[in-house]
Design a protein around this nucleic acid. Sequence first.
RNA 1: CGGGGCAUGGCGCAGUCUGGUAGCGCAUCUGCUUUGGGAGCAGAGGGUCGGCGGUUCGAAUCCGUCUGCCCCGACCA
Length: 568
Amino acid sequence: MRFSQFGLTTLKEVPADAEIVSHKLMLRAGLIRRLASGLFTWMPLGLRVLRKVEKVVREEMDRAGALELLMPAVQPSELWEESGRWDQYGPLLLRMHDRHEREYCFGPTHEEVITDIARRELRSYKQLPVNFYQIQTKFRDEIRPRFGVMRSREFIMKDAYSFDIDHTGLEASYGRMHDAYSAIFERLGLKFRIVDADSGEIGGSRSQEFHVLADSGEDAIAYCDADDYASNIETAATMAPDADRPVPAAELEKFPTPGVKTIDDLCEMLGITPAQTVKTLIVEGTDGPVALILRGDHELNAVKAQKIPGVASPLTMADNATINKATGSEAGSLGPVGMPLPLFFDHAVAGLADFSCGANEAGFHFKGVNFGRDLPEPETFDLRNVVAGDPTPGGTGTLSIARGIEVGHIFQLGTKYSEAMGATVQAPDGRNQVMEMGCYGIGITRIVGAAIEQNHDDDGIIWPGPLAPFDVVLVPINMHRSDEVRDAAETLYAELTDQGHEVLFDDRDARPGVKFADAELVGIPHRLVISDRNLAAGELEYRHRRDAESRNLKREEALKLLKESSVS
RNA sequence: CGGGGCAUGGCGCAGUCUGGUAGCGCAUCUGCUUUGGGAGCAGAGGGUCGGCGGUUCGAAUCCGUCUGCCCCGACCA
């Protein structure tokens, strides 16, 4: 491709709305352009990268025996009513109707459609196992699209769905996808980690996420190198403290705390640490508001809390009016002592003695609070996020926390959809049996952003080889003044293209600095500079995007090097 | 959904407080010079200042309203 004909516009300055590096670089390098909130056009350069991701994903899915098909993006509401998700899914689902006022949605995922296909097409256990996949555009009406392509509303996803006769079969299908996903992210050259996950809206039992590690990731991952444990922080379990509670030493005392609204305020006034306090959060319960009690330095984990019987799901914080009505006090002065609501204590709170908390009277707190005297012995729950240093569930090590970008998610769905939609096949014994399903997603568009988060420097993108939009960039110096340079560049361009290289030929009449800067911004792995200077010696100047320095190579050596690198 | 902020040429911004008919840098086009790390000079094109309504002799600027966008937030108990 000749640069002059590629319609590529790079930017020196970044649009002000870009927050993270990948978003900035994608805009600067001309990969994407924004249309509206969470909606992006993939420009020619960006589309080349997207196709590379698709290629790797497709090859590995095919290798794993999955069958590609393509389902409609627009889906009738009836299917979603069958599965029960038309009412459950909420505002994330973009709904619309046609001229006959029939209701549809733009698919955020395709369990319903594929289950419908399966129940129509699959008759016998002999047709199983089978795994269908597609690479297709989804739409999810995110509350807050951000970070460019990382959390957009319209995005491209590879989604696959397996059907098995029984749970053993499902586990085998799931295992094949687990391995295929690992192979995909290996091939893409990304550093990733597989973690246990919550199955969320999709439902089902076992589920794991594939995270590309990056500090800008929206997810926190808890992991332990001692025993291979890794989990999304949403689901990482905390253990009840096994050490005995200290013996109470203090008397219960109520004291005035004017202006104290936060744990930090309280700590400052008393000269204590947040771990010696308790905070009380009022949330909606299944039967009126309830109180969740956490240690002052711990964070509530909404995913875990909303699974506790008696707590409303999704977790909803009570507003101030509700709090005032239910407690007779106000936010900032709440505590478990004398609280008229159902109390849910976190495990860690039960390990405290002589702690401080609100007194349920505006402007007053308690100190020296103790269980068994001021409060009954608590029943405790897992309510909080794990923190670095917590013991692993296996008990063999302690947890570390890293940040990640979720690029893949695999689920064992079981019979959730097949049961609801009557997807059965005839089993060997002649009876109709509900199929066991798995579903497996990869965020194709998100991978592009994630790859940049992990592979860039101050000058721009550094594409891993398999993702690069071009593998070689030719930079002729002063081509428009030197016939020698022009001839050499044209010949090289033709030759490399013939050899199957994807070459970006910077034939613009621009100064060298401009070309170098663009080549680095765009991140093409191999750069060859053609100039009078090195042409006289029969040489080309070679530099890999990752190298600090360039080196002069004989023309044949350079060609050989490129040939070898494209094989690996 | 709650809170904050922004909206001026393709991009980044100034001008708004204190009303007087729009400016800078980058990008684009022309010419000359320059040519190994985002060139210089000279010139040019391009903006109903997000929409609507109001105040005023006069509105980018003041007032009202709507829309769009960005950031923060379920951590305040």
